[in-house]
Amino acid sequence: MKLYFSPGACSLATHIVLRELGLGFDSERVDTKTKVTETGANFYDINPDGYVPALQLDNGEIVTEGAAILQYLADQHPQSKLAPTPGSWERTQLHRQLNFIAAELHKSFSPLFRGAEGDARTAAIETLGVKFKHFERLLADGRPYVMGDTFTVADAYLFTVLNWTRFVQVDLSPWPTLVAYLERVGARKPVQDALVAEGLVAA
């Protein structure tokens, strides 16, 4: 397999899951501005939508869209328990959380990545605060992970997106449960290994 990624982008979630599963894979960095990969390939030829992550399977097929990739990987390795059984109530809840992360939390960072300033930045942070409350409530009962006691693909995605607060200088201290969650997930060895491999933390 080959993962097309950009350091710290949402592709980090796929990177984490590949390492959680202990799978062998190659990786190729993508310049998300020029859409050129580190080997000089036109990324639009790999994913016409131009977004990371893209995962090339051993049979040559390309899977895109982070939430789809995460669930595909988990379903290929059900013994990992990285996703509940398809069709179960628990799987429906996983879908719910992945959709919230993608549609609500992930997208709410967009103004900050585009360099919003002044009132626009304040408004974007206020919007993020509303989304943070969803997960603050979810984790307030002492559960260590999104789905309870077991780390799942939802945690790989949520960690990745919450970690963006460090890059756009958003203070998470008003949400102490999320601060603790970031530290807890970030301490996992596969997560640390992915962060080091992408150059996001020192080895």
Rank of each mutant, 00 (worst) to 15 (best):
K2W: 03
F5S: 00
S6I: 01
P7G: 04
L12T: 06
A13L: 10
V17R: 08
R19I: 07
R19Y: 03
E20M: 10
D31T: 01
T32Q: 08
K33C: 00
V36Q: 05
T37A: 01
E38H: 01
T39H: 09
G40K: 07
N42F: 00
P48H: 03
Y51L: 13
V52C: 02
E61N: 08
I69F: 07
I69E: 01
L70V: 02
A74N: 02
A74T: 09
D75E: 13
P78N: 02
Q79G: 15
K81T: 11
A83R: 00
P84L: 06
P84K: 04
P86V: 10
P86C: 11
T92F: 13
H95V: 14
R96H: 14
Q97Y: 13
S108E: 12
A116D: 07
R121Y: 08
E126M: 08
E126K: 13
T127E: 13
K133Q: 15
R137Q: 14
L139P: 04
L139Y: 05
A140P: 04
D141V: 05
P144Q: 05
Y145I: 06
L158S: 09
L162C: 09
V168M: 08
L172H: 07
W175I: 05
T177V: 14
L178M: 09
A187Q: 15
A187L: 09
R188V: 11
K189E: 15
V191I: 14
A197T: 07
E198T: 11
L200G: 10
A203Y: 10
